[in-house]
Amino acid sequence: MNIPLNIDWQQILLHLFNFAILAGGLYLLLYRPVKDFMKKREEHYQSMDEAAERARADAAQLQEQYASRLSQADAEIAQKRVEAQRELDQYRAQQMGAARQEAQSILDRAKENAEREHEEMLARAQKELADLAVTATEKLVLKAQGDPYEQFLDLAERGGAHEQPERE
């Protein structure tokens, strides 16, 4: 059959054969390697992006944890402060009580001392008064007995008489 326009089936098949070789060769040599590389690069950047996203999420989670910990710490600090204040108050009350007790005991002791000293002073005063009274009486007696010089000598003699037996 004479096909118009010089269409030739054999040449069409030869063209097809030629194109099939070209298409296969271009696919294996150029299209697939370049596409594979582009895919690899895309995966690389995607993994980088995912890693960055993960790191960001981790950081956000960490921040959230720290914020919650911080708020917990604030609460704990407030609670500790309250407890410390309470302990401090207790301690202060205790110390005040102890101080009061000590002050009371010091006061008591001071009172006792003062009373004792007072009594001692009284005793001393009484004794001094008694001594004074004795001395005054003696003076009066001596004055009634004569010259003081002689009395002195008498006394001295008496005193010597008294001391000698003691030495013996």
Binding site: H15, N18, L22, G25, L26
Partner: peptide, 28 residues
């Protein structure tokens, strides 16, 4: 005997495959 277009097609194919092979070996 074939149309000149078929020879052109073969030359173009050979050229493209040679270039592709060169790119595959030396560039990619």
């Amino acid at each position: 005997a074939v149309n000149p277009g078929l020879v052109s097609g073969m030359v173009v194919t050979a050229f493209l495959l040679a270039v592709a092979a060169g790119i595959r070996i030396f560039v990619i």
